[in-house]
Design a protein around this nucleic acid. Structure first.
Lengths: 352, 352
DNA sequence: ATGAAAGCGCTAACAC
DNA sequence: GTGTTAGCGCTTTCAT
């Protein structure tokens, strides 16, 4: 009541109210002193009465330690990253650390600003999903706090990275389509020069190269927006009516392909196969359900969390890239080239 | 070089290196002193050389002010909240404040913990999308920092709230269906006791009550998971084959309804109308595109941001509820009961 | 066991 | 203008 409005009671107010010293209050708060004697009780009462809450930041400042881990992702609206944030929060649960999340909106400038900002924070470590640009590389390499890169490899660097096995997963997807008899395949990818997509493309190419039959594989760079992607995929389908399968290398292309196919009355799961790299909720709910290569986000989060904690404890471990395996979910749009469904039922989906 | 590894150079190191006092360095950093004289230059050089970064937190502690605004949402994976975070970050851009986002995973316990945590933070204000439970009410009301509630009204309170006009938007949606000749309508809602859904239900009921014809309106509580919702909606469609329109009062029910309709070969946009409260990317991309009541997230974010800044400046303004109007996007699944499409083309969508 | 006092990194009021 | 100094809220020796 005797303090200026808006400012909260400090440890000193509690001490005064309980008739003890601030240090003593600190001891009580941090359990370094028995709680159930007259003094301990008095302190607790004062805390209660004044509505005292410890200032975490001041506490950390004094301890010269931090219980925060900064997370920078490109975009909250991408379901993959949204799930990543959720899973990382889950990992943080129960540990002494908490996640502080911000996004770069895929803008390298903002990304640098965010990293810069975090550098001025007392964060114990940084988890980063880099934007589609490697400008952040020097900043990370000279960072004084541990950084773990997630999902997107930064070329020519020896940073800690947790990513999925893009190459192998794509190759497997492509092999699957070839096994199913597809020979005219449309590969929709985002753009050149994006690490993940490049790796996925390489996987597709490798699988195609191993195949002996004559293939007609069309590679289409769709660009980032769904609307434009639908247009381009549609055009390509019109020009290549013999196409029997579409393999989309990132999730919004799948939505575009789905729409384009519907618009042309191409019956997915009957005349046309569709496979997506990266899953989304809608894919398993529509009918026919869209087959997808599922990125094990929970596992990625687990690995990233483990790695950053290790790094915080001991900075001496050698850095390295961890590749997490993806699962191909066998849903209804994954059919043979003759139109036969390989798997008719939802219940045969492989679990992640 | 003479400091312990992992700890960053402080303002004192810079001062020593530049041969000036810490206070002087502070003055240079904060532009309270001209930069381009020998001393100013020496300081800048020292900063450069040591790789000094200001510790934002310590700075804020000393200034007894904060440049952070805490945001607590129920769930990063809900596209509506994801967009909200993105839009709020956009609002924060250019201001002196930044957003620190965490989620409660719809768990009232975690929500309380998060609010408690923020109470111990030097945040200037709190933006909260409450979980589906009002347990947080007392905490907010006794908070020593301004709180603005977003999206979900907390009953019987006089807090600052920014929400959409659920009642009016639902009523308009329902009226629209009635005008289009629908008389057997399925209303899929999440569950009773959830504020937003209750308001939407009330809007639907009010519109139905105003109508003179005999109506058969089925209300179905789907529960939170899409799979279960699809099952229940499917069952209800089977039991009521005369149903000509489905109105889903939250976004994942729309996905469930879409899947259920596809599974039964009910042609959406031809035999069956579908209207969604809340938009998602997939809705405008599938064919027929799913009509949706669009919540103007950007506007919600704008209002919330404006409100919290006002509150931070002056806590004296009277609190109040701001209701933001939604837009009905006229897409292809919004057809008349006789099967005629009211609007055939995507291009006639109203803009948000 | 307990309280006084120093100090985390920084800023602001104050003297010089 | 410039450096000295006190202190933001807290923790942690270190005397008592």
């Amino acid at each position: 009541m005797d303090r200026k409005i808006g400012s909260r009671p400090s440890i000193r107010d509690v001490a005064r109210s309980a008739g003890v010293s601030p240090g003593c209050v600190s001891n009580v708060i941090n359990g370094r002193r028995k709680q159930d004697d007259p003094i301990g009780r008095a302190v607790h009462e004062a805390i209660e009465k004044l509505g005292y809450r410890r200032n975490t930041i001041a506490s950390n400042l004094r301890r010269s330690q931090s219980r925060f881990i900064g997370l920078v992702i490109p975009d909250f609206e991408n379901p993959f990253f949204a799930e990543l944030v959720a899973q990382l929060e889950q990992q943080a649960e129960g540990t002494q650390y908490r996640i502080v999340a911000t996004s770069s909106r895929e803008d390298p400038e903002i990304e640098l600003r965010e990293l810069d900002e975090l550098a001025g924070w007392p964060v114990a470590g940084i988890l980063l999903v880099p934007s589609m640009d490697s400008r952040c590389k020097p900043v990370i390499q000279t960072s004084d706090k541990p950084v773990v890169v997630i999902d997107r490899i930064i070329p020519d660097s020896d940073l800690d990275v947790i990513a999925v096995d893009n190459f192998e997963a794509s190759a497997e997807g492509m092999r699957r389509l070839l096994e199913l008899g597809h020979r005219r395949i449309l590969i929709a990818y985002l753009d050149d020069g994006i690490v993940n997509v490049d790796e996925r493309l390489a996987g597709v190419r490798a699988a195609a190269a191993q195949h002996s039959d004559e293939l007609e594989v069309n590679f289409l760079a769709t660009g980032p927006d769904v609307e434009g992607a639908r247009q381009r995929i549609g055009d390509l389908l019109d020009e290549n009516p013999g196409t029997t399968a579409i393999f989309c290398l990132f999730n919004s292309a799948t939505l575009a392909a789905y729409g384009a196919a519907q618009a042309r009355n191409l019956r997915l799961g009957q005349g046309l196969a569709l496979l997506s790299f990266d899953d989304s909720t809608w894919m398993s709910q529509v009918q026919p359900a869209v087959a997808a290569i599922i990125q094990p986000v929970a596992e990625i989060a687990r690995q990233a969390w483990e790695r950053i904690l290790t790094r915080i404890d001991a900075e001496t471990e050698p850095a390295g890239i961890v590749r997490v395996r993806c699962e191909l979910s066998q849903r209804e749009t994954l059919i043979a080239a003759n139109g036969v469904q390989e798997s008719a039922s939802r219940t045969t989906e492989e679990q992640v």
